[in-house]
Write a protein that binds this DNA or RNA. Structure first.
Lengths: 224, 224
DNA sequence: GCAAATATAATAGCAATACTATCAAATACA
DNA sequence: TGTATTTGATAGTATTGCTATTATATTTGC
């Protein structure tokens, strides 16, 4: 799987960037270092000027790759969910039993991420931290409907739809497969966030993981 | 209940504001019109300058009530969750059966909000729309840990804890009461958001509500 | 009813943000 | 080697997110 991911190019909607950052060393540097800088100072305080200083490049050069920092975050998110979809595919591909398959998928989308060494310019572990704390901001804008029409969130929706199909395979009579799937994806990020910051309103800690919570949830909810 | 709410003053942590907006007409105007303006143009584009123009007041006058727009949003959120807690209390107070009580509570926190005419300077229906699209931004900042220590999110956590107690009353053996409660509160906002913007990844629409989804969820999850 | 206290408005100003434009220098590539 | 493309450097603009100061209302306490 590691080798497969390193050869398959992660596809991101072309409208998200001005120039594809995968096509140059500066572009890859922008991706790599923006992940570290956003993790470090937070997306709200992140600017292209600061990123320029960090990578020893000019602000205006970064604008040649991304219109603004919002689009960069949408790009990083798309990259993350695309990578997640590959992981899902390879991890569940050879499982026969539909419930085991769903279970494996839930583990993949809710677990804490370790760095995948196959992608040298992206640290998935740090990217996962960004997704936990910043992903919601890609959706919660006044432009969400336009951007949705442009296909900015297609990859994210693909991941959810993959889970939807697995849920239906387990229990075709369950009437809320889509809501359950979107709830688990969003909810897992939220439980990770609560574990890190608002510890009194989650059961998740060093011993109990969001994965435990959601595996228990689907087991009872989809029981026939 | 309507009368009770109009007499009980909604309490908000004093550290959130510079001067209590409930103590003056300008303060109340700031609250009332900021809700409408944030709903109109979105929190990201909202500025004190624009609000000043809208209420025919000076930017600097608004700064005497709130340090910045983030604090104003935290204030509006606190007000909302405090109001929600009153609603929860009065709606569940006289119910004996623990499951009916929980069910009623879930209806209250997940349903679409109509304006409560008892509070003249706050349109709860519009405030609910803001909470759906902007509440997550109060938490997802680099300052979340400090602000949590200062008690900025106490009222929000109170609402969740109230649900936690109701869950435990229904099934004391269920091991994820806190995660379930925080998932439902956050998840319901998210399902409302998806219904409005990303309709393909939710079952919620004009006929099926987030309430239906979560009532079904607790019914199966907490079954003994 | 008047003085004192307080609240609000008006204006100015400053540093940072979020860009755009232009031109020069470096690099790639044919 | 010449040309195209990419990057860097510099400058500039409108807006944001404030703070400070002073003037003018408005409230209140006696």
């Amino acid at each position: 799987m590691r080798d497969l991911i390193s050869t398959i190019k992660i596809q991101v909607n072309e409208k998200i960037y001005v120039k594809d950052p995968e096509t140059s060393t500066l572009g890859k540097k922008i991706i790599k270092e923006s992940i570290l800088l956003i993790d470090d100072i937070g997306f709200d305080d992140f600017t292209f000027k600061k990123l320029g200083v960090k990578i020893g490049s000019n602000e205006s050069s970064i604008y040649r790759y991304f219109e603004n920092k919002h689009k960069l975050l949408v790009y990083l998110s798309s990259w993350y969910w695309n990578w997640m979809e590959y992981k899902l595919f390879f991890a569940t591909n050879n499982i026969e039993d539909s419930f085991d398959k769903l279970k494996k998928a839930i583990i993949i989308v809710t677990e804490k991420i370790e760095d995948d060494e196959a992608t040298k310019h992206i640290n998935e572990s740090v990217l996962n931290k960004i997704i936990i704390s910043e992903f919601t901001k890609t959706l919660h804008t006044k432009e969400v409907d336009e951007e949705n029409k442009e296909g900015f969130f297609l990859i994210y929706k693909n991941v959810i739809n993959r889970i939807v199909h697995l849920i239906i395979a387990v229990n075709p009579d369950y009437p809320f497969a889509k809501s359950l799937a979107s709830n688990i994806i969003e909810g897992a990020l939220h439980q990770h966030f609560l574990r890190d910051h608002l510890t009194t309103i989650t059961n998740c800690n060093e011993n109990i993981s969001p994965t435990d919570f959601y595996i228990n949830l689907i087991t009872t909810v989809l029981k026939k």
